[in-house]
Write a protein that binds this DNA or RNA. Sequence first.
DNA 1: GACAATTTTAAATGGCTAATTTAATTTACT
DNA 2: AGTAAATTAAATTAGCCATTTAAAATTGTC
Lengths: 240, 240
Amino acid sequence: MRVLRQDAARTRHSLLAAASEIFAEKGFRDATIATISKRAGTNVAAVNYHFGDKQTLYREAWRQSFRDSMEAHPPDGGVDPKAPPKQRLAGLVAALLRRINDKDNREFHIVYRELANPTGLLEEVLKEEMLPLRRRIIALMREVLGRRSSETQVRFYAISILSQCIIPAFINMAERLGTSPEGESWEVTDIEGYAEHVISFSLAGMAAIGRGTKTPAIRGTQLPRTDQSFEAQRSSTDHT
Amino acid sequence: MRVLRQDAARTRHSLLAAASEIFAEKGFRDATIATISKRAGTNVAAVNYHFGDKQTLYREAWRQSFRDSMEAHPPDGGVDPKAPPKQRLAGLVAALLRRINDKDNREFHIVYRELANPTGLLEEVLKEEMLPLRRRIIALMREVLGRRSSETQVRFYAISILSQCIIPAFINMAERLGTSPEGESWEVTDIEGYAEHVISFSLAGMAAIGRGTKTPAIRGTQLPRTDQSFEAQRSSTDHT
DNA sequence: GACAATTTTAAATGGCTAATTTAATTTACT
DNA sequence: AGTAAATTAAATTAGCCATTTAAAATTGTC
């Protein structure tokens, strides 16, 4: 009969931790079991002993990172669930920003690399964990916007807000490529300050919906539509 | 003495086109010369004959894609340079959105993969081509916001707008992973409609800056700061 | 404190992929 | 027709890694 041993649990944890780091740094393919077990301070065979194979380790590492991440930054941002919607939205934004930009966040980086080089290994896990987050955001947005707003409006506003929360992390990655000289970087160092900006910016933007379909400011800026954008593009002047 | 031949130019072009596609699909490492030359309809040796090595082909392919992309969607969005700032901003946003989300845009995808798996091969080229874009945006933002706005404010607003333009492309990638069920996708299919939303949303958000430092709506949503966030920079309030 | 299962280890196994070069052949241009 | 340019197929060269095995070490229990 199986007996759980102390040492086993310890190496299992080291492996998970190391795997999260390495997978976040290199993605599934470029991360080698050798590197991972080295950082974990164990033998290569340990991975297959404890997890069966690399793929399982990958999934488990992501799960672990996700749990850690959500625990460190609960999605309500510490705002009372009974607080008014706008305040809860502020909490959500702050939490999201803190979570994604937490330097200890491996989860985001793993997903990021998965997006660029899909392995398909996280499909189920992602579906399972991301959907509730989406529903939470949409529900909150609907509350803030009021029920006169359409489905697409709710989605567009949600996207606008989400995008602002995600981008600092992308910027950080881009900056690591060595683009942009001194003082001309997009990098966001003051996440808390930025969070305040996002909230004030977004609430003001959302308030516009209450003041009629379009603000006067918009009427002046009629979007010039280009020819190809009218009829669903016919493969923009393809030079075959 | 060297003579330029017709066939040479043709295969060179096919190679560039094929390379752009494949590099955009797979990134530098996973793209093989074999695949590229096959799609181009030439022999494997052709790459080395015409470009010397894979790396040069990579750089050239990106350059080509970038040129195509910028030509298809000029950054002013077709708005008269003498038009009022807000209108020019609308043009810039529309152009950016169209450019990034053009299904023929390889450039963006190549950079995207480069971010996840950096090769360092595009460093110079990127620096060279992206900086002017950044400066253009910042200058325009400063114009729209007026000169009472601080450096950080200008940057934050620019980031807010940029993020909204970039995200649809990221969403598309994420959706390709097969996450999110029917009708619960973040995907943006109507780019033109979304562009209008971004502009109205953002102009309203920016208008808030004129109405005092904070709108009444914000005062109610005091951000609960976490311990580690206090110390953090107070650069968000510096009116330079 | 010895036994048996659990865990760790070092070394070996097996398998796969790809850029680049060469030398021969074909093509295009004068 | 002749020659340099361009294409081709095949060979060359190079690298890297997950997993398994069998033996050694450890842990917990009786």
